[in-house]
Design a binder for these strands. Structure first.
Lengths: 329, 329
DNA sequence: GTGAAAGCGCTAACAG
DNA sequence: CTGTTAGCGCTTTCAC
C-alpha cells in the first residue's frame, strides 16, 4: 500500500501538497491538483487513518456497547445510531460485552486510547463507577438504561409509566390476578417497571403478591418459559402476565402453550419492546413499543454533539402500547 | 491524557524504558519497573493504540461484515468469532452493511487503511470483485456464503446436501407436494439449497413445479408470511414446505396459522439455521442446524492464521437436521 | 501556491 | 539494564 510520500514523489510535489489535495484545501492550483489526483489513482493510494488519526487525535469511530446482540431489541436502535453516525462521517463499532467486565475494560481503553471518539452504552450491567469516571474526560451517552441522579446524559423512555399503563390495560380487561415476570432488580428499568406495575395494582385496590412476581436471571427466552412454569404451579394462578421484555413474554407464551391453557382466553400476556418477532408469535403479542430507531438517532446525535464539546441534555422519549391478540380474550 | 513522554519524565527514565515496561520486556530491573509502574498509576496513563498501531502497522482489530444484525442466525457465529478473537488478543468490529455498497466501501477502506488487520465477511451481497481484489493484499475470510471457484478461503456447510436431506425427510413422512420458499437465487446458498431440493424430489420421482417455488426479496419474517399466503392460494396446495431460513419458515408458520390450517397436521414445515426463536414457535420448528459457533471460531482462527501470513484452507463443516413439532404430523 | 520541517505517541535497533 | 534516536503516515504552521 502506497503512502503519501510515494504519491508526492510520483506527482513531483511535496507531501504537504498531497495532504492539501486529500483534504480539499483551497490553496492548490488546478494543475497541481490534477497531477496529484493522477498519482493517487495510479498508485491506488488510500490515506492511512492511523497516521491521520494520530495527528488529529480523532478516529471518527463511535463505540456502541451492548450486553448481547442476541436480543433483537437492540437491532433497531443500532440502525438509528448507524445511520446518524454515517450521516456525520462517523462509523460505529459494535461491542458485545456479554456483561463481562474484562471485555468492558478493553472497550473503555479504546476510548481512552483515542481509538474511538466516544461511546454509547446500552449495557445495563456496565460498571457505573468506571463509566462515570470515563465520562469525566470522554464523551459518553447512555441509551435505554441510565443512571438515576448520575451525571452522564441519557436517552430513554418512562419505564414506570409504560409499565403502569400496560398493567392498567390488563386490569381494564377484567384481570385481578396479574403476575409480573421481571428481570434482576439490580437494573433500573426492572425497578421502574415493577414500580409501575405496583402503582397500577394499588390504584385499583388489587393485592401485590410476592408469589406473582418472578425474577429471571437474564432476558433469554428460556427464562420466560421457566418463569411461566413456576407461575402455573401456584395454588392461585394469575390470569394475566406482564413481562418486562418481549423475549421473556415469548418464553412465557411458550410455557403456557405447553400447559394446555390458552392465550388470551385463560391468560393474557403483555411484553415490552415490540421486537419484530413479537408479531410472529401465535397469538401475536401485546407489547410496549419503545421508539427504538429514534432512540438510536437521538443517542448518536447527542454523542456527536458531546464530541464537539457542546453540552447535551438527557431526553425521555414517548412509548406506545401495541395491542395485539395476546390480550384480546 | 498523559503520554509516554510524561510518564518517562515522572519516573526519571527514558521513553524506551517505559515502552519496555508496557510491553513486559524482560530486560528491566525490578526497581526501574516499579518506578515506571508508579508513574503510570499516578498519571493515570493509558498507552495510545494509535501510536502503537502506527508504529507496528497493526491494529489487532478484526472486521466482521454482515448484511444485517436483525437475523439471529449471525448471533452465534459472532460469539464464536468474538471469543476466538479475544483469546488471541484481537477485538472485533461488527459492521452492518445493509447490503449497501457505499458502507461496504467504508469498511474495505478501514482494512486498506490499517485500521483493521483483516476481515470476515458473512455478507452474501458483498461486491465479489472488490472483495477478491482486497483479498489479494489483505487477509479475508468468507463465512457461510462463499465464492465458488474463487480464491478467497471460506468456512461453510454443504447447503445442497442439507437441503436434500431436509426435503427427503419431508418425503419420507409421506409428502408428495413439497414447496420451497427460497431467497434470491443470486445467492449461492439459495442456488445450492434449491439444487438439493430438486435432487430429493427427482430421486423419488416427484414433480418439480415452478408454482411451488417462491422467491423472497430478503429474509425478514414478513417475506415468509407473504410466501405462504401465495402458496395457500394455489389450486393445488403443497402439503409441506421447506424454507431456506428459519426467519422465512417462522413467517410461513404465521401465514398458515392465520389461514385456519394446522401445522403439522395439514402442512409440515422445515426451516434452516436453528436460530433460538425456532424453538419458541408454536409448534416448534424442525430445522437444519448449522454449527454456528464453530463456524465463527473456525473463521476467526483462519483469519488470524492468515494475518500471520500462513496459508489457510477452506473448511466445510457438518450440519444436523433437528426434528421438532412442525414435522411431527 | 507550494515546500520544508516539526511532531502526534509509540517501538525497536543500536549503543553503551 | 538503560538511553538515544529514527521513523511509522499524516497534518499544519511557517517561510518563501
Amino acid at each position: 500500500m502506497a503512502n503519501i510520500q510515494q504519491v508526492a514523489e510520483k506527482a513531483g510535489v511535496s507531501v504537504a501538497t498531497v495532504s492539501r489535495v486529500l483534504n480539499h484545501a483551497a490553496s492548490v492550483s488546478t494543475k497541481t491538483r490534477l497531477k496529484v489526483e493522477n498519482a493517487i489513482k495510479e498508485l491506488n493510494y488510500e490515506p492511512s487513518m492511523l497516521g491521520r488519526n494520530l495527528r488529529n487525535s480523532e478516529s471518527r469511530l463511535l463505540l456502541v456497547l451492548l450486553p448481547s446482540i442476541s436480543n433483537p431489541f437492540y437491532t433497531e436502535i443500532i440502525n438509528g445510531i448507524q445511520n446518524t453516525a454515517i450521516a456525520n462521517s462517523y462509523n460505529i463499532l459494535l461491542c458485545e460485552t456479554d456483561s463481562n467486565p474484562q471485555r468492558e475494560n478493553i472497550y473503555f481503553n479504546m476510548i481512552k486510547n483515542k481509538l474511538a471518539d466516544g461511546v454509547i452504552s446500552m449495557d445495563p450491567t456496565v460498571n457505573r463507577q468506571k463509566l462515570t469516571e470515563l465520562a469525566e474526560s470522554h464523551p459518553v451517552i447512555l441509551c435505554s438504561e441510565y443512571d438515576e441522579g448520575g451525571s452522564v446524559p441519557f436517552v430513554t423512555i418512562d419505564s414506570e409509566l409504560a409499565a403502569y399503563q400496560a398493567v392498567k390495560h390488563l386490569i381494564r380487561l377484567g384481570n385481578k390476578k396479574i403476575a409480573l415476570i421481571n428481570s434482576d432488580e439490580k437494573f433500573l428499568y426492572a425497578r421502574q417497571r415493577r414500580s409501575g406495575y405496583e402503582r397500577a395494582l394499588k390504584e385499583f385496590d388489587l393485592p401485590i403478591r410476592e408469589e406473582w412476581i418472578y425474577h429471571t436471571r437474564d432476558l433469554e427466552f428460556q427464562n420466560g418459559v421457566q418463569a411461566m412454569r413456576m407461575l402455573l404451579e401456584l395454588e392461585e394462578k394469575p390470569t394475566a402476565v406482564f413481562a418486562v421484555s418481549d423475549t421473556l413474554a415469548i418464553g412465557a407464551l411458550k410455557g403456557i402453550n405447553g400447559s394446555g391453557l390458552h392465550v388470551p382466553n385463560d391468560l393474557a400476556i403483555i411484553g415490552f419492546d415490540n421486537i419484530s418477532f413479537s408479531n410472529m408469535t401465535n397469538p401475536t403479542l401485546t407489547t410496549v413499543s419503545q421508539p427504538m430507531y429514534k432512540m438510536g438517532v437521538t443517542a448518536a446525535n447527542m454523542l456527536i454533539m458531546s464530541i464537539k464539546g457542546e453540552q447535551v441534555e438527557s431526553v425521555v422519549l414517548d412509548h406506545d402500547l401495541i395491542i395485539r391478540e395476546s390480550t384480546m380474550g
